[in-house]
Nucleic acid binder design. Structure first.
Lengths: 203, 203
DNA sequence: GCGTGTCAAATAAACAGTTAGTTGCACTAC
DNA sequence: GTAGTGCAACTAACTGTTTATTTGACACGC
């Protein structure tokens, strides 16, 4: 005769889903899909493990849900400015620094989930929009045509990531002053990348 | 009464170790440490999996052995030229393209093994040598002083990696012509990074 | 006969996913 | 208001499989 504990919390599936998503974010960011443990996620969220399967399907789909949420956040919070790629790189740098899970999640996704059909929602669209916007800015004469739009985007993203923690070199703790200098260096690097562009704006 | 097959191959522990290392490279590059299966590595190497434990200790140490070998290879085969960082980026690009496992292994290492004590052998030393060489080249007036030596190294590596497969954008197959253009773009990007340097050499 | 290399089989733990059931709660009929 | 009903939220216990790692017996060259 199984005994059940009275639930300390009121029943609220949305809140449980949210706690699950938060716990899954931490677990996946730290250990990836293969390394993540469903039991651990349930325990951290203080939610029965079976709910993961009713709410999200399985471990992989839970990861996909985590990715979708985080891609949406970065797209929302970091506005893209094709005529000011150095500024964009700086803002992306700031965002990634404030959200250290983002880059790890994206990297796990690239390693463990790429080649599958499921791309994070809106990522492909956003990439296409960005390259199109860059191409238009080039046509308007506001951006160097030395590189293709794809090159410019890929290089800008790469430079914004280059100094992030868990990068090959960042073993020592990032003091605040050092971080600011790295940010400045990233912005300057992108500035040099796009050099040869009129800084005055045409209306 | 267990039956034993007569060994088809002559006994050769070195050859077995080498086959194990090769199979482990493929498995780890594809699936990382947590996703790798010891059985699969043994089967692919046509070596009993117990040998993995006698030769390498355990799964993690096998991964470390794989990393050591591959770090040694890239350090050997891609000479570092602080006075010609664009050329270095191009050569690194070529190497990574010819050795697609390298970048994935390095990425898995960053995600799953960083924070542990074991760094791949010679990597720290090599990084230190490279930054020192860059600093010297700056002192000699052959390289821009806009960036610190660390910035220059990190950015150069980031740009050389930016267009590699399993990068966010490289979903379509890399046609040979497109690859050449990407290589050119990487070299040009690093050229712009280090711009303001005399191109003529002082002896 | 001894050391080195080899192997199938065993083991114990961990794992993702399932199931059968319990509990809280909104709503209704009276 | 209160007994009854339907249902979604929740739960403990379990299932069958997979896993890394160990073991102990066998073979071969010397």
């Amino acid at each position: 005769m199984p005994q059940h504990q009275p639930p300390a919390r009121p029943r609220d599936s949305e809140a449980s889903k949210a706690r699950l998503l938060k716990a899954a974010t931490d677990e996946f960011a730290a250990r990836g899909i293969a390394g993540a443990r469903v039991d651990r996620i349930g325990a951290a969220a203080e939610v029965n493990k079976a709910l993961i399967y009713t709410y999200f399907g399985n471990k992989e789909q839970l990861f996909d849900a985590v990715m979708d949420a985080h891609v949406a956040r970065v797209l929302d919070e970091v506005p893209f400015t094709p005529e000011d790629l150095p500024g964009y790189a700086g803002r992306l740098f700031d965002f990634l620094l404030a959200n250290p899970h983002q880059l790890r999640l994206a990297t796990w996704h690239r390693l463990e989930r790429s080649g599958t059909d499921h791309e994070p929602q809106g990522l492909g669209t956003s990439m296409r929009q960005k390259t199109t916007a860059i191409a238009q800015t080039q046509t308007d004469g506001l951006l160097t045509t030395t590189f293709t739009p794809e090159d410019l985007l890929v290089f800008t993203l790469a430079l914004a990531n280059a100094w992030m923690p868990t990068s090959p070199m960042a073993t020592s703790e990032q003091a605040a002053e050092q971080t600011r200098q790295h940010r400045d260096a990233v912005v300057e690097a992108v500035r040099r990348l796009v050099a040869g562009t009129p800084t005055t704006q045409a209306s």
